[in-house]
Write a protein that binds this DNA or RNA. Structure first.
Length: 154
DNA sequence: GCCAACGTTGGC
DNA sequence: GCCAACGTTGGC
């Protein structure tokens, strides 16, 4: 199957690209939105490429790249009562939430801010630029991915 | 800290 | 199934 391209948001105060560089891989736990979950469960495969986006940051923008390193598995946090991501609807034999494993982080030489994206005439169709777009996992075209990778200096 | 935009919940 | 109320996201 052809490689797909994604943008995944994370708040750097919670989990930044630098965290991923140190951890090497991480399970993308805590996604509690059905559309984002469905992308992970049904659309993502190992080797897909990711723009690692810092949201709620100063400034917000793409910090670097990552890759999908494992296909979706049940999100362990949905079963943990103590977790803020606990979901009483979820049963071990019928999980509700899934997450993929992300790794292979590479940091951009140039951080590409949201403002940079907004200014670039060839990136105007990106979902992340759409008003009110809150989805934390978004598909990205190969064309946009390649351009941003280049702008980032990789 | 504000608030627009969106998703979810729950009463009916 | 509608929709008001509420909660969350995330830029600013």
């Amino acid at each position: 199957m052809a490689k797909k391209h994604w943008l995944m948001k994370s708040e750097p105060d919670v989990y930044s690209l630098d965290h991923l560089l140190k951890d090497k891989t991480t399970w993308w736990e805590g996604v509690r939105n059905y559309q984002a979950r469905n992308f992970m469960m049904k659309e993502m495969s190992v080797g897909d490429e990711v723009l690692f986006y810092h949201s709620n940051a100063e400034p917000p923008g793409v910090a670097g790249l990552a890759q999908i390193t494992r296909a979706a598995e049940p999100d362990a946090l949905q079963f943990q009562k103590s977790s803020e991501y606990f979901d009483p609807k979820a049963k071990k034999d019928q999980p509700v939430w899934y997450c993929v494993q992300v790794g292979g982080a590479k940091k951009f030489k140039n951080f590409i801010s949201l403002e940079d994206l907004r200014r670039h005439k060839d990136l105007q169709d990106m979902l992340v630029l759409k008003r009110g777009q809150r989805l934390s996992i978004q598909p990205v075209t190969k064309k946009d991915f390649d351009l941003i990778k280049k702008l980032g200096g990789l």
